[in-house]
Simulated scan of single mutants.
Amino acid sequence: MEFFVVFALLLASAYASPTIFQRELVVPVLDDNVEGRITNGLTAASGQFPYQVGLSLKVSSTSSAWCGGSLIGNKWVLTAAHCTDGISYVTVYLGATYRTSAEATYTVSSSDIIIHSGWNSNTLKNDISLIKIPSVSYTSRIQAVPLPAVASSYSTYAGDSAIASGWGRISDSATSVTNYLQYAIVQVITNAACAATYGTTYATSGNICIATTGGVSTCN
């Protein structure tokens, strides 16, 4: 069975409902303050997801947050616009399995962040951004994610299995993100099935939806 990685932003979820993702986006957003998480998943082995990036975001002098991202080249990290919107700087953790124990870290300012020009915080459309970092050397634990071929860019992937990874909260009772990288294997479902829960406003051709059977998901 083939697997692919979900580069996605979680919009909403419940145990009995599908999860909806923005198609263009990066691995689930994992913030101390939002509903990002991996529930009923597995603990990743060292080097299992070498493209996984941790982002410590400085929002203000008294506020910070945590998000996830994917390394897509030796100078670029892909993440969500709502993670980087309004921050002053971000510390990027590369090659980590334990959240803050990384092979390499870089701190860059907002001038090195490119937020999609069409980002809309009300509708969550175009929730995608890029972070430019100094050139990083690849190792067994630091690798760019293998992107799909252009020819398959518009596949629905319905029926395929996907892997989502990150350091989100692992249960409703958790008060902070986990320190150990988690992952969940999930099945992609049709947008028509997803629209039965979320409606066509969110379940559009620009989204990918997954089933959350048994509470294995990227949210609560």
Rank of each mutant, 00 (worst) to 15 (best):
T107Q: 01
Y98A: 10
I115Y: 02
K125M: 09
L57G: 06
T190M: 02
T84G: 06
A203C: 14
S110P: 00
D172Y: 06
C219E: 07
F49W: 03
S56R: 01
T84A: 08
I38C: 02
Y51W: 09
W76A: 05
T201K: 14
T39A: 02
S109L: 06
I185M: 08
V186H: 09
I128D: 05
A104K: 08
Y15A: 14
I208N: 13
I87E: 08
D112M: 11
T197H: 05
A8P: 00
D112T: 00
S13M: 07
S121R: 15
T213I: 06
A44P: 07
A104C: 10
A184R: 09
S161D: 02
S110T: 14
I114Q: 12
W167P: 03
A8G: 15
K75G: 02
V216L: 14
W119C: 00
T190G: 06
T175K: 05
I87H: 09
Y154E: 14
H82T: 13
I170M: 04
I170P: 07
S13C: 11
G215L: 01
P148T: 13
S137H: 10
A195S: 15
T212G: 04
T62W: 04
S13Q: 08
S153M: 00
W66N: 07
T39W: 04
M1L: 04
V188I: 11
V145P: 01
V216A: 01
W66I: 02
L11I: 08
S88V: 12
Q187K: 03
G168L: 06
W119S: 13
V77P: 07
G69H: 02
L181N: 10
T190Y: 08
R169I: 06
Q187F: 09
I210L: 15
A158K: 11
D32R: 09
N220I: 05
A102V: 07
R99M: 09
C83P: 14
C83D: 05
S140H: 03
Y198Q: 11
V108S: 01
S176Y: 09
A45I: 10
A196Q: 15
T19G: 10
G166P: 05
L55A: 03
S173H: 03
